[in-house]
């Protein structure tokens, strides 16, 4: 087996008496999509935040490409190759689609400290940004102000900004959130092809997408991983059925 690109080791996080993350050890191998599922309040967002740098774990480690990044800031983790998308779109609403993508390209190229040449006229930034927009199908909308995008287009742009970073690993927090059936299906197809570029840690409520995409699934309940396995194993597990899936599976 190849070494995991991203891993957590015995991660713990409590808020007062509430144990939001309870000894969580998961890993993400090259080329795979590892989905995290669980009921609301299971601690998925808390886990993602600890992986991406928004929250410090009480104990345990986050390993990115074998390196312990538990003490690193969000931006240091991004520079180390972590590309994240948000459950609620974090975009610059007054800027155009292209400008949002350029921001990602600036992060990737380390070109934020330039004061003279317009950002939009720098070929290296533009090429990178437009390539990412092209891939998610937003090329024709590049000059539209982000505030005027539909919800679905914002979700696409959210993915595009992560793409501009050419990350070594994607962490996606409910990329399908609020998408219609058609949009969901298209994004599922896209993510399916994306895993060969960089593995994806996927938090998702859309079970159709999860079962279609995930090589492995971990089920989080009350901060604890109660099961990890392939889609079939998870479907078959009675424990998971009781805790979460109910009759859906």
């Amino acid at each position: 087996m190849s070494d995991p690109v991203l891993a957590t080791l015995n991660l713990n996080k409590s808020f007062g008496a509430l144990k939001a993350t309870d000894n969580v050890s998961i890993d993400l191998k090259p080329g795979e999509i590892h989905a995290i599922i669980g009921p609301n309040g299971a601690g998925k967002s808390t886990l993602i935040q600890q992986i991406c740098g928004g929250l410090r774990p009480d104990s345990g480690q986050v390993l990115l490409c074998g390196q312990d990044v538990s003490g690193h800031s969000t931006q240091a983790r991004a520079q180390a190759g972590l590309g994240r998308t948000f459950q609620i779109s974090q975009l610059c609403m007054e800027d155009t689609v292209l400008e949002n993508a350029i921001l990602g390209a600036m992060g990737a190229e380390g070109l934020a400290w330039r004061f003279w040449q317009p950002a939009l006229k720098r070929p290296e930034l533009r090429d990178r940004a437009e390539a990412a927009l092209e891939r998610v199908g937003l090329s024709d909308d590049r000059d539209i102000c982000c505030a005027n995008l539909s919800h679905g287009q914002r979700r696409q742009l959210e993915v595009a900004v992560a793409l501009t970073l050419s990350p070594r690993v994607f962490v996606m927090d409910e990329p399908m959130a609020g998408l219609g059936a058609g949009g969901s299906k298209r994004l599922t197809g896209f993510l399916d092809g994306l895993r060969v570029e960089a593995p994806i840690l996927l938090v998702e409520h859309d079970m159709d997408a999860v079962f279609a995409l995930a090589d492995r699934i971990s089920v989080l309940v009350y901060g604890k991983v109660i099961a990890t396995g392939t889609a079939d194993e998870i479907r078959a597990s009675t424990e998971v059925r009781d805790a979460y899936l109910g009759d859906a599976a």
Binding site: C52, G53, G54, S73, T74, Q75, A76, A78, Q79, R84, F86, Q90, L91, C92, M93, E94, D95, E99, N100, I102, L103, G104, M106, G107, A108, G110, L111, A112, W113, R114, F115, W116, Q117, P118, A119, R122, L125, V161, T164, L165
Partner: peptide, 21 residues
Amino acid sequence: SPFGLALNAARQAGTRVETVG
């Protein structure tokens, strides 16, 4: 400039700026 765009983004979505490094 790139700096202006990044600063403008920091006003609108600070978390986004951090996540691009």
